[in-house]
Design a protein around this nucleic acid. Structure first.
Length: 1049
RNA sequence: GGGCGCGUAGCUCAGUGGGAGAGCACCUCGUUGACAUCGAGGGGGUCGCAAGUUCAAUCCUUGCCGCGCCCACCA
């Protein structure tokens, strides 16, 4: 054998061998009927895998390998996720960086083709990384969320939910990403606290009306009384004033009671077309915040939207898809007049009509929202309608002579000084500097704009109910279970899930629109759209044919066509226009004979397809044998960050379409951070690349480092080179133990009849059955091994990966290497052939068990050693997991732990007394109890060797000049007359006496406590008595040793 | 505002209602026939603070302090 394990060379070779042997295939090595299935959390095809993936997949592989060895019919289903918005972004960025034509220049088809190339590239990288890590996925079943079958599953689910009314389309306020120009779901919004400002403006009352404005403190004392001709409004978003539909105050707010129902003027826009809006009441405004009055902009604020809905206030959209001020529609004057008529109650608008109204003044049209904000503020201030306060007012952020301005991200900065006289202004507009929570797109990192648009939604509330119940009933358990609360909290407050995205990369919505047939219309067709939801174009056409021929009373030909951006625009605006189908209608002989239906160009949220992963990858909607066999799957291992995105949605869809939860256990793994506890990020430059770690330390070392640090309920796992080095050292230690075994010809006896590797507890050869073993050390290691096996198994059953790793680590290093190998040496090098054979067989067996137990965590080195050490009928990956009875031999355990104590005691005192490491010294045991002689007889060679003794005797008394150590059943005397430092020895003994003193005191006190004696369990009391006795005896003997020392001089 | 996690050796972290642990780092010694990616030995902790429950608290309860994260609509 080589001196060390060359991971870089061996790991790929071993992996290739497994692969070519079909070792990962579903059902490989199964010896029982039960299945064990894990579906991989499909990595995004955006790039490569990070440390979090390495952890996640290591944990999955550990469970998979363990269960496979246990004989389960195992399937680890691999695959990748198309990751809609993220992947589209990667490609768009790359196009930009390489100065290629952008998405819109390329056109949808070409662009999507380009994204497929990205998918191929990234998928190759990812699969390669998983292989390097040693993942034993069934690669023959590799899947992709946009493969034919998975896309078919998506279509079927969409259509079924649509037909059941669980998917619907509606105009709602959604989170809009102005960079990607798409709607996103609530979950894709990250709120971040930023420095913001709050402006206070005056909305003059219509017709110059005035009222008594009275402010009171908490005691009801009047603190301010003045006549006002305005209502004061505080806002962080002045540009949205243009779309205000009302001003709301709390119904109980006495300050504004006199003017509720009146109209006030929005103080911006061309004077001749100033708009009036009503002052209404709503529960939403908090009288104690700001001025207590809130401007209501239903189309650009989620709260305002709610108020607007309740109060039947129109929602006027101000911005386009890039969050620039609208340029479309009628001239401002026309629409402002229309809005004014609405405010006066002279007419009403439908939602769609309101959306057509463009209330952006002509001079602001086309401006970015932040540029528009600056202009609005400037105009209002210039006009004197800002609330003014003394220049030294504490809330004034608009510092003397300077005005706030805005960068692209909406953050305030400072503008050049305003013109001013020499003394400076006495009053300034009130602008409060304020921390505000600003929503950002999680991918684009730009400020999200609430936008009123038509989108597709899933009725998540309905689907969530059984998914909540499933966890409540224990059908699915979270490990650790505190995540269940997080799950409930979200699921119980779930909102409709916005699933449509105005992107190109994804599953296109399977809905085609044609013109609605007017119920009694003479024209036959209306401008409204009629959706046809179907799994294919053919079916959509069939549905359309049926619809039109039955409603129009004659046959029509249907053409289908894909939607394009122009149509998207129209859809977003609410829906009417020539492109929606009327244009595609042709007439002949006064009758409609051809109608074109147009497919919705939107695609679905990427999580819509991921939600189906546990059953779509198994073949659904086809009723495949795999689906029947492996669903429900067993465990899902994932990070807490996608409990909402993914886990919850898999629960919903799994129950809905399979009538069964997708998995019985959800294990939530840690988040990998760097060695300093910092989140790994590109900007911090602290990313640890798993491939780099694998290159430098090996996959086994990386896996061990991850597994040994994966602790339940701990949120973060610190990964560092140091941790990987630890894993590597462990591998080397094991490697060298195996070298020792090989050098000493510790081979497994081979059963020539069955060809099977023999197990000691079921051996046909007889050589190593524990009941036939003669030698205590061999009996002992069997017991240790069986206990280690039980510990590892228990840890894995409980998903305690760190405990599994620690259990096998300690067993290999501290038991097998530190003691058993040393204990075995005298036997292996002795003359007793029978003892030699027994020890060789036992060591071979014990080492094999180590390899088996370690294999799930460190598969490569264990497989390599397995093949190296003996001729095997099977690769280790397919060996049986030990199901050992407890092989403990009480007498052997007691004896070996006594031997270990003796050796450790001698070693300790030698080091303390500075006995040269090479010097062999004699040992005399005194005060020996029962059995010591026998133990000594059987183990003196071991003790002499490991404690470096020249001789061992049992004596009547301690030789003069001895160093004395106390064990419970004897004293160890080391005659060190020549080298002993009396003072040092006295100090050592005194320290030991002091220690026993402390213990005796504590125990005596405890045993004198009546409460303790009366209430503590009998065995605890007994144990304390025992300990007291031992401590007293110990102390007596130490004192005796001290006396001898004094006598020595 | 609500929820969660964490404060144990210099560092990173396990752990337990009844005698404080590991890895790394540090100190001393060591080329003993598997291994210097090693071996032997050692130093080092009021288990965040306070109160309570208990015969007994590092562990359970409560409060406080500190750190981190998640969710949430205060204009």
């Amino acid at each position: 054998m080589e001196k060390t394990f060359d991971a870089a060379a061996a790991e790929p070779r071993i992996y290739a061998a497994w692969k070519s042997d079909g070792a990962f295939a579903a059902g490989a090595n199964k010896s029982r009927d039960d299945t064990y299935c894990i579906v991989i959390p499909p990595p995004n095809v955006t790039g490569s895998l990070h440390m979090g993936h390495a952890l996640n997949n290591t944990l999955q592989d550990i469970l998979i390998r363990w269960k496979r060895m246990q004989g389960f019919d195992v399937l680890w289903q691999p695959g990748t996720d198309h990751a809609g918005i993220a992947t589209q972004m990667v490609v768009e960025r790359e196009l930009m960086e390489t100065q290629q034509p952008g998405r819109r220049d390329m056109g949808r088809e070409k662009f999507v083709e380009r994204v497929w190339q990205q998918k191929e590239k990234s998928e190759g990288t990812i699969l390669g990384q998983l292989e390097r890590l040693g993942c034993s996925c069934d690669w023959s079943r590799n899947e992709f969320t946009m493969s034919d079958n998975l896309s078919a599953a998506v279509l079927k689910v969409f259509v079924e939910l649509y037909n059941q009314g669980l998917i619907f389309r509606g105009k709602r306020l959604v989170n809009w990403d102005p960079m990607f120009e798409t709607a996103i779901s609530d979950l894709e919004v990250e709120s971040t606290e930023v420095d913001g400002h709050m402006w206070h403006f005056k909305y003059p009352l219509a017709g110059g009306e005035t009222y008594e404005y009275v402010e009171k403190d908490d005691d009801g004392t009047i603190t301010l009384r003045e006549t006002r001709d305005y209502i004061s409004i505080a806002t962080t978003r002045p540009e949205t004033m243009l779309g205000d539909g009302a001003v709301a105050v709390h119904p109980s707010d006495e300050r504004y009671a006199p003017i509720v129902g009146q109209l006030c003027e929005i103080p911006v826009g061309p004077k001749e077309h100033r708009r009036l809006i009503p002052i209404i009441t709503d529960e939403y405004p908090d009288p104690d915040f700001g001025s207590g009055a809130v401007k209501i902009t239903g189309a650009h604020d989620f709260n305002d939207y709610g108020v607007a809905k309740r109060g039947n206030i129109p929602c006027y959209r101000l911005m386009d898809t890039k969050a620039a001020m609208r340029e479309d529609g009628a001239p401002y004057a026309e629409d402002a007049a229309l809005a004014l008529a609405v405010a006066r109650g002279e007419r009403t608008l439908t939602e769609a009509e309101a959306d057509q109204v463009n209330l952006v003044p002509d001079d602001l049209r086309g401006l970015d929202r932040y540029a528009a904000r600056a202009r609005v503020i400037e105009q209002i201030t210039t006009e004197g309608l800002a609330v003014m306060v003394a220049a030294d007012h504490p809330d004034v952020a608009w510092m003397k002579g300077q005005a706030p301005t805005w960068d692209k991200k909406g953050r305030a900065g400072l503008a050049p000084p305003l013109p001013d006289d020499e003394t400076g202004p006495q009053t300034l507009p009130l602008v409060e500097a304020k921390k505000i929570m600003q929503p950002f797109g999680d991918r684009s990192k730009v400020v999200i704009e609430p936008m009123l648009t038509d989108q597709w939604f899933v009725d998540a509330k309905t689907l969530a109910e059984p998914a909540i119940a499933a966890v409540r009933d224990g059908k699915t358990k979270f490990v650790p279970d505190n995540w269940e609360r997080v799950y409930y909290n979200w699921m119980e407050n779930i909102e409709p899930w916005c699933i449509s995205r105005q992107l190109w990369w994804g599953h296109q919505v399977p809905v085609w629109y044609g013109p609605e047939v007017d119920a009694n219309g003479t024209s036959g067709l209306s401008m409204e759209r009629r959706p046809f939801c179907a799994e294919s174009e053919e079916e959509a056409k069939r549905a359309a044919t049926n619809y039109y021929s039955s409603t129009l009373g004659h046959d029509v030909r249907i053409h289908a066509q894909n939607g394009d951006d122009e149509i998207v625009e129209i859809q977003r605006r609410g829906g009417t226009g020539p492109a929606l189908g009327i244009e595609g209608v042709s007439w002949s002989d006064g009758k409609i004979d051809e109608i074109r239906i147009i497919r919705d160009p939107d695609v679905l949220d990427t999580w819509f397809s991921s939600a189906l992963w546990p059953f779509s990858t198994l073949g659904w909607p086809n009723q495949t044998p795999e689906l029947a066999r492996y669903y429900k799957t067993d465990v899902l291992i994932t990070g807490f960050d996608i409990i909402f995105f993914w886990v919850a949605r898999m629960m919903m869809q799994g129950i809905k379409f399979m009538d069964e939860v997708p998995f019985h256990t959800v294990y939530i793994n840690s988040i990998v951070v760097d060695g300093h506890g910092k989140k790994m990020s590109k900007s911090l430059g602290n990313i640890i690349d798993p491939l780099d770690l694998i290159d430098r330390f090996g996959a086994d070392a990386t896996r061990f480092a991850l597994a040994s640090q994966e602790v339940q309920a701990r949120r973060t796992l610190r990964m560092s080179d140091q941790a990987a080095e630890g894993g590597q050292r462990f591998g080397t230690k094991l490697w060298n133990a195996a070298r020792f075994a090989e050098i000493n010809q510790c081979y497994r006896p081979h059963d020539s009849h069955t060809g099977a590797d023999t197990q000691p507890h079921a051996s046909h050869t007889g050589a190593i059955r524990p009941e036939l073993a003669q030698h205590t050390v061999n009996l002992w290691i069997m017991g240790e091994t069986s206990r280690a096996a039980a510990a590892v198994t228990k840890a894995l059953e409980d998903y305690k990966f760190n405990e599994a790793a620690t259990a096998i680590y300690d067993h290999v290093w501290k038991v097998f290497c530190d003691w058993y190998v040393e204990f075995a040496k005298p036997l292996l090098m002795g003359e007793d052939e029978a003892a030699k054979a027994e020890t060789r067989a036992t060591m071979a067996w014990a080492l094999d068990q180590c390899l088996v137990l370690l294999h799930p965590i460190m598969p490569f080195i264990t497989e390599e050693l397995w093949a190296t050490l003996s001729n095997r009928s099977k690769a280790l990956i397919h060996m049986d997991w030990p199901d050992l009875a407890d092989l403990s031999d009480t007498a052997a355990d007691a004896e070996m732990s006594w031997v270990i104590r003796v050796i450790e005691s001698v070693r300790s005192v030698r080091a303390e007394m500075n006995v040269p490491a090479g010097a062999r010294i004699p040992m005399v045991l005194t005060g020996t109890g029962d059995g010591v002689a026998g133990r000594l007889d059987r183990n003196s060679a071991l003790i002499e060797r490991l404690a470096r003794l020249s001789s061992i005797e049992i004596g009547a008394g301690a030789p003069e000049g001895s160093v004395t150590l106390t064990l419970d059943d004897c004293e160890i005397n080391l005659p060190l007359k020549d080298i002993i430092d009396i003072a040092a020895e006295r100090a050592r003994l005194s320290k030991a006496v002091g220690k026993t003193d402390k213990e005796i005191n504590g125990l005596e006190k405890k045993l004198a406590n009546q409460g303790f004696l009366a209430k503590a369990p009998e065995e605890v009391v007994e144990e304390q008595r025992h300990r007291l006795e031992a401590a007293r005896s110990d102390q007596a003997r130490l004192n005796a040793a001290l006396d001898r020392l004094s006598a020595m001089k």
